[in-house]
């Protein structure tokens, strides 16, 4: 047993060294995400509820066939500008498992505002079985869980330009980044799709999910692949960071307070220290 543990420990270190070593050799994604204009970018940026509603539509009618959104509850959709009645009606379209009832049986009922989005598959194995072995990840946190390396000097400059939209830029680039003409130095395994924007390889199991005019938006927005990708990326930023608007609004007040306080302290400090050479 001890021997095994020693070997496991050694393997862990070796794996780390090799894994970190392999990283440079395979610097994915091949193409850096393309930066987009986001309504929520910058210190005063806020979510655009209309865009989030369109993104919800894309998620609900496309992505949700394979991808779960289990950390978002229907009640959260109030952030998108929906009324309680609209949310109840929307939730009622979904069936969730509940129970046990008085006889000890599980049963299905329409979802309520308090329920989370039900997952398309009961478990990871079922998801894999239905998707040729690939697991479509839960999208709740996707916009924060993918951040291609920024590199130097971008990572130094990012705080100065308040760039924090790496995640949605990545999602947008991936969704619009499928290419039919595969470069010669890339081999795409059978059943995978070439996408130079994919974070962990050159090809992924998800087929291009969006096509022009596959949806009709109530607000007249043209359903181009680019528009839909952008809307769903914005929606996923909201699912990952639902309190971003609150955060930036509070941040502004905190910073104004701190800067005024700092200015007053500086003047006081000058006054106090003017009594003595230092």
């Amino acid at each position: 047993m001890k021997n095994l543990v020693v070997k496991l420990g050694a393997a862990a270190i070796a794996a780390t060294v090799m894994v970190t070593g392999a990283w440079a050799a395979s610097a994915y994604p091949k193409n850096k995400p393309r930066e987009q204009d986001w309504s929520f970018a910058g210190p005063f940026g806020m979510y655009d509820p209309a865009q989030l509603q369109r993104g919800l539509k894309v998620y609900a009618e496309n992505c949700s066939a394979c991808h779960a959104l289990s950390r978002v509850s229907f009640r959260n959709l109030a952030d998108l500008g929906y009324s309680d009645d609209q949310i109840k009606a929307f939730a009622a379209n979904y069936e969730v498992e509940d129970g046990p009832d008085d006889f000890g049986d599980m049963f299905f009922r329409p979802a309520t505002a308090a329920d989370a989005f039900p997952s398309p598959f009961p478990n990871q194995e079922a998801a894999r079985a239905a998707n040729g072995g690939a697991y479509p990840p839960d999208l709740s946190l996707m916009a924060k869980a993918r951040a291609p390396i920024r590199g130097f000097p971008a990572f130094v400059l990012d705080p100065f330009r308040n760039y924090a939209e790496n995640g949605p830029d990545y999602i947008y680039s991936l969704l619009t980044g499928y290419k039919d003409d595969v470069p010669e130095d890339v081999s795409v395994p059978e059943g995978l799709w070439y996408n130079p924007y994919f974070a962990s390889g050159t090809a992924l199991a998800m087929a291009p999910p969006l096509f022009d005019d596959m949806h009709e938006f109530d607000d007249g927005t043209e359903a181009t692949v680019s528009n839909m990708a952008k809307d769903v990326a914005a929606f996923l930023m909201w699912t990952a960071e639902p309190h971003m608007d609150d955060r930036k609004q509070l941040g502004f007040r905190v910073l104004v307070f701190l800067l005024i306080f700092a200015a007053l302290l500086y003047l006081s400090k000058k006054q106090v220290w003017s009594r003595v050479e230092h």
Partner: peptide, 13 residues
Amino acid sequence: AVYAYFVFYMPNF
């Protein structure tokens, strides 16, 4: 103030 900038505007940087 610098800390607050990161907390409120770049919390995951």
